[in-house]
């Protein structure tokens, strides 16, 4: 069981990497190579060596734990479906590789990869709930465990860093990355003026929300202060006497309501146009002398 649990840990590492790389499909050519190796690992090891051992275990468990027969049978069927899905995805990735221009099918493949990751995670979670973290070690007799572990498969390549680097160099390099950008949506190039202008627009919209938020809260404060001033003024003429001050405060607030968003909008417009401004000539090249 310890070995199966460890293989789940390795599978989780690979699933996390697939999730990151599939978001880069169509933008980063390196993602294709990493995904190809990740799927090769799943097809060649997890689906060939890990799942058949789990299937053998489940078949024995069904005998001793008839109450789990339904769930164990479903898990076994999912192994077969998962293997087919992984092979299909590996084939699609290989297609992208040879096509060279992975722009069009990338989005669909990316969705399929995420679905595979989600389904595999859910499958593993159910396995852990039903079998792995149960009292499974006591469900079978010692000789049954011996029979199950009699012919263990070759070592998991993910358990040995050198072996991983030798067989799956791109995947090994990706797994060793210390920083990952997850689900990047941006196709923006740093030097592209349209992209910079769009980015300025987004920031301007956020600034505008901040400005209106500020005004909203100020408005609440003002309304409360005005109500308190009116309420606490001595009757009958106190409230009347307080009105000019209230009017001045309200007027100041009204002008802020007009000026603050306008200032933010103008500032935003300036920043949106800035990327399109011609670069400033440097004085030395312009100066003939």
């Amino acid at each position: 069981m310890a070995r199966l649990r460890l293989e789940h840990a390795h599978l989780s590492r690979v699933l996390r990497e697939i999730e990151v790389q599939r978001a880069r499909l169509g933008r980063d050519p390196a993602a294709v190579a990493v995904l190809a190796e990740a799927l090769a690992y799943l097809v060649d090891y997890q689906h060939v060596h890990h799942h058949p051992r789990e299937d053998a275990l489940y078949q024995r468990l069904i005998v001793t734990r008839a109450d789990l027969a339904g769930e164990l049978g479903a898990l076994e069927r999912e192994h077969a479906g998962g293997a087919r899905q992984a092979r299909r995805l590996a084939h699609s990735i290989a297609g992208l590789h040879s096509a060279g221009t992975p722009e069009r099918p990338a989005a669909r493949l990316s969705r399929d990869l995420q679905r595979y990751v989600d389904e595999t995670r859910d499958h593993m979670r159910r396995e852990e709930r039903v079998v792995f973290h149960g009292d499974v070690e006591h469900w079978l007799a010692e000789e049954e465990w011996r029979a199950l572990t009699a012919c263990l498969p070759p070592d998991d390549p993910l358990a040995d860093a050198n072996e991983l680097r030798r067989r799956y160099p791109h995947l090994a390099a990706a797994l060793a990355e210390p920083v990952r950008e997850v689900l990047t949506r941006s196709r923006e190039m740093v030097g592209d003026p349209h992209a910079r202008s769009l980015s300025a627009l987004r920031e301007g919209a956020a600034d505008l929300v901040d400005a209106y938020g500020e005004l909203l809260h100020e408005g609440f404060d003002l309304a409360r202060a005005n109500a308190v001033a009116l309420w606490s003024a001595p009757w009958p003429f106190g409230p009347l006497a307080a009105l000019p001050e209230l009017g001045r405060r309200s007027y100041r607030y009204a002008t802020r309501c007009v000026s603050l968003p306008s200032r933010v909008a103008l500032d935003c417009a300036g920043r949106m146009l800035a990327p399109f401004a011609p670069p400033a000539d440097d004085a030395t090249s312009a100066d003939p002398g």
Binding site: D118, R125, V182
Partner: peptide, 14 residues
Amino acid sequence: AIERIADFVRIHVP
């Protein structure tokens, strides 16, 4: 994000 954290937990607490 939570699924990725769960994966991380599974990796280090198999």
